[in-house]
């Protein structure tokens, strides 16, 4: 067992872990951060995407021991129902999710993309989220959501009138 300490969504946790423990399993099973999910075993689907020291990574392909001393942000740390992150809000308003399983990873990847490219074209969004698979939406509304969030975050948006 190895002692690891990391700050997750603003709280510092110190635990003993087996070196083989994947970061995503540590988050889910030791810290109860079950908002982040596992969708595959080959790093393709991106459902497990979190931010590690501010950068989007696939937490199924990082060992918990590698995140020792790091700052981790999950879907649970970016906003709440009362104060949604603009990307969360846009996914809701543009119907960018159906079953919602890929959504945490999709949102975390999208936030990362917008940090690097605050005003992506449709093609740039599509490429920017190529590491995240969704089986429900056909992606079009996800693309719309990311573009809406981009407009809102850069202050150029007219907020679309959400009805609920």
């Amino acid at each position: 067992m190895t002692r690891v300490s990391m700050r997750v969504d603003g709280v510092t946790y110190t635990d003993e872990v087996e070196p083989r423990t994947l970061l995503v399993h540590h988050l889910r099973e030791a810290l109860g951060k079950v908002g982040t999910v596992v969708g595959c075993d080959t790093s393709n689907c991106g459902a497990c995407t979190v931010h590690l020291d501010g950068q989007a990574v696939k937490s199924c392909t990082v060992l918990a021991v590698q995140a020792d001393g790091a700052e981790v942000t999950t879907i649970e740390g970016i906003g709440s129902t009362d104060a949604l992150h603009p990307v969360q809000k846009a996914f809701h308003e543009q119907h960018g999710l159906q079953c919602g399983f890929c959504t945490p990873g999709m949102i975390m990847a999208s936030i990362d993309l917008l940090k690097e490219n605050p005003s992506p074209s449709e093609d740039e969004v599509r490429e920017g989220i190529e590491g995240n698979l969704c089986r429900c939406t056909g992606y079009q509304n996800i693309v719309r959501a990311v573009q809406q969030a981009a407009r809102e975050m850069s202050g150029t948006s007219e907020t679309l009138g959400a009805q609920s």
Binding site: R28, K33, V34, G35, T36, V37, V38, T74, I75, E76, G79, S80, T81, L84, Q88, F91, H92, E93, H95, L97, G100, F101, T103, P104, I107, A162, Q163, S164
Partner: peptide, 21 residues
């Protein structure tokens, strides 16, 4: 009406109840 979904709130914030949770 193009109602935004009631289902979304917990799915976009990670407050989910997947069986594996």
């Amino acid at each position: 009406q193009a109602r935004r979904r009631k289902e979304d709130a917990h799915l976009i914030t990670g407050e989910t109840t997947w069986t594996d949770n």
